[in-house]
């Protein structure tokens, strides 16, 4: 009997739950244009997880990385939800570095 998968699965649920929270908060404070940075951080964390010996820590890093990437794909729709008043709208968002270039890219939406 191996409880590793069950426990990692439960931890993943918690990470996804926290993910929903930071996407709402992150979009309100930073704005959706930060999406490439979150994708980059997520991919970097997933690759880094391969260099962690401990299985628990490696899996956790991989899951958090995936959650960052998924959250980045949710940013655009979250921005529209806030505009519609379904969530609080942030009036003083921090523009990311290279915002003018990012604005020309189509944000991912899965």
């Amino acid at each position: 009997m191996n409880t590793f998968g069950l426990v990692i699965g439960l931890i993943t649920l918690a990470v996804i739950g926290i993910g929903a929270f930071w996407v709402i908060r992150g979009e309100r404070v930073l704005g959706y244009l930060w999406w490439p940075y979150f994708i980059g951080a997520g991919v970097l964390l997933m690759v880094t997880s391969g260099f962690i010996k401990n299985d628990w820590c490696s899996a956790l890093a991989g899951v958090i990385g995936a959650s960052l990437v998924w959250g980045a794909t949710e940013f655009k729709e979250q921005a529209i939800r806030a505009e519609l008043g379904w969530y609080p709208f942030g009036n003083h968002k921090k523009r990311p570095p290279f915002a003018k270039i990012i604005q020309k890219w189509k944000p991912p939406n899965l």
Binding site: I16, M46, A66, W70
Partner: peptide, 15 residues
């Protein structure tokens, strides 16, 4: 150093 595929598999499974 041996690459630990568990993190990548966990991340891909979650995504």
């Amino acid at each position: 150093m041996i690459f630990n595929y568990l993190g990548l598999a966990a991340g891909l499974a979650a995504f």
